[in-house]
């Protein structure tokens, strides 16, 4: 295997990693603080992408689209929280699963009704179109590099916000012990609402940013959702650092695994067997990884709760 391919796949993995982190951040906080399993979180990512398609068509400007998508995603999360989710914070995990699957089905189908089954894509904005040479033979798209940079910046900002601000302290305290926070006289309902909406906004933003790279369709959130659950469980529920680390690990293992597993298998077994087993094994890798992590560290790498 050549180093150029490795480098490209590393960058692709990194780019997937930051996107996963943006979606997983909201998921892990909501889970950690409110003990709420939200299977509809992937929908926020999908809706973010569609909002991008719509607002770009309306405004014609990618830069204008960004704030509109952020506000739109935030508001949708607020509406969902008010109508459904807040009634379920005290319910069993199974009721939460049922209700959030219901929301997932409803919104996914609604989007399909409105937009039809065809795929959409947002063009890469002109000022980010192009590629930069990384080595003599290797060029890499500017847009993907910007996504990586933006994602890393947001990760740092989020980490600072959670670890250094008063609001962040409340969020952390909430992830450790929600009752204590309410005993401090904090309006827990508003804290929950804010965390929920903010998480939805991040996921929506991830959807927008992903839209020029992946195909926009109504089911695009499902695969991401499962990956994000793997991410937050590996990282440790309720922990931003854990979500970041988990996202990078999962994305790199998945991306590199899909590229190289078959080749590695060819070294071990005969080529025809390798081509049939390789892809399946590559798809299994992250689950294998999660099972191993949970076996040795049942609470994940960076658990939020003491």
């Amino acid at each position: 295997m050549d180093t150029t391919l490795l480098l490209v796949q590393l960058l692709n993995g990194l780019q997937l990693g930051v996107l996963l982190f943006l979606v997983a951040a909201g998921l892990t906080l909501v889970f950690g603080i409110m003990d709420f399993i939200n299977l509809a979180h992937g929908v926020q990512y999908m809706v973010g992408a569609y909002l991008g398609v719509v607002f770009l068509a309306l405004t014609g400007s990618f830069l204008l689209t960004i704030p509109l998508v952020l506000v739109g995603s935030f508001l949708i999360a607020v509406v969902l929280e008010h109508l459904v989710f807040r009634k379920l914070y005290r319910a069993s995990h199974l009721s939460q699963v049922l209700a959030t699957v219901g929301v997932l089905l409803f919104i996914t189908e609604l989007v399909e009704i409105i937009f039809g089954p065809q795929l959409y894509q947002i063009p890469i904005p002109a000022f980010l179109d192009g590629a930069v040479p990384l080595t003599d033979t290797l060029q890499y798209p500017v847009y993907r590099l910007v996504v990586i940079g933006l994602g890393l910046m947001l990760a740092v900002a989020l980490w600072l916000a959670v670890s250094k601000t008063r609001l962040g302290a409340l969020v952390r305290a909430g992830a450790t012990d929600a009752e204590m926070v309410s005993a401090l006289g904090v309006d827990v309902e508003r804290l929950f609402l804010f965390v929920f909406a903010f998480g939805g906004m991040l996921a929506g933003f991830a959807g927008l940013v992903a839209a020029p790279i992946v195909a926009v369709e109504a089911h695009m959130g499902n695969q991401v959702l499962i990956l994000c659950f793997v991410v937050i469980v590996i990282g440790g529920i309720g922990s931003i650092e854990g979500a970041f680390l988990g996202a990078l690990i999962v994305a790199l293992v998945d991306t590199l695994g899909r590229t190289f597993t078959t080749d590695i298998m060819k070294l071990l077994v005969d080529p025809s067997a390798a081509t049939t087993i390789g892809p399946a094994l590559a798809s299994m890798l992250i689950y294998l990884l999660m099972a191993v992590v949970l076996f040795f560290k049942p609470r994940g790498l960076y658990p939020a709760k003491a």
Partner: peptide
């Protein structure tokens, strides 16, 4: 979808 939500 909404029926599942209502049941929950």
């Amino acid at each position: 979808g909404p029926i599942l939500v209502l049941v929950a």
